[in-house]
Design a protein around this nucleic acid. Structure first.
Length: 115
DNA sequence: TTTATGACTTTAA
DNA sequence: ATTAAAGCCATAA
């Protein structure tokens, strides 16, 4: 039988929901954590198409590996992404997350808390 | 089916 | 550091 490969999309949504408050992660990190390191674009696709209808998914905590709010333009009000981040204490300047490297949350950390 | 597009990432110059 | 091009996977037309 043919199992649906939508596991990827479901995982993206579930994992995105796991991003801690006040932290951010990247498309590539999520894709990698799921098992498809080259599907970073699909993560973006998932957020723009599936997460858009789900308000329980903090899609604003997902940015690109440069720490830039690449999806800012896709929020209902484009400035909402930065607004939501600001509410969590994340400072954004010039569409870039300040102290990004420090706020970065690796999805892989879920299952490997003890080194 | 083929072409174009995209909330990406990496490599090369 | 900045710019350009290739690789990637799925969707929309």
């Amino acid at each position: 039988m043919k199992l649906k490969d939508d596991h990827f999309f479901d995982s993206v949504l579930d994992l995105t929901k796991c991003i801690p408050y006040g932290r951010v992660t990247t498309y590539g990190a999520i894709a990698k954590a799921i098992g498809s390191p080259n599907s970073a674009r699909l993560v973006g696709w998932t957020l723009s198409n599936l997460a858009h209808d789900r308000m329980d998914i903090p899609a604003h905590r997902v940015i690109n590996r440069n720490g830039m709010l690449s999806g800012k333009a896709h929020f209902n009000p484009p400035e909402l992404m930065q607004e939501l981040l600001a509410r969590e204490g994340i400072l954004v300047v010039d569409d870039k997350v300040v102290n990004f490297k420090n706020l970065f949350w690796d999805p892989m950390d879920i299952g490997k808390l003890d080194g």
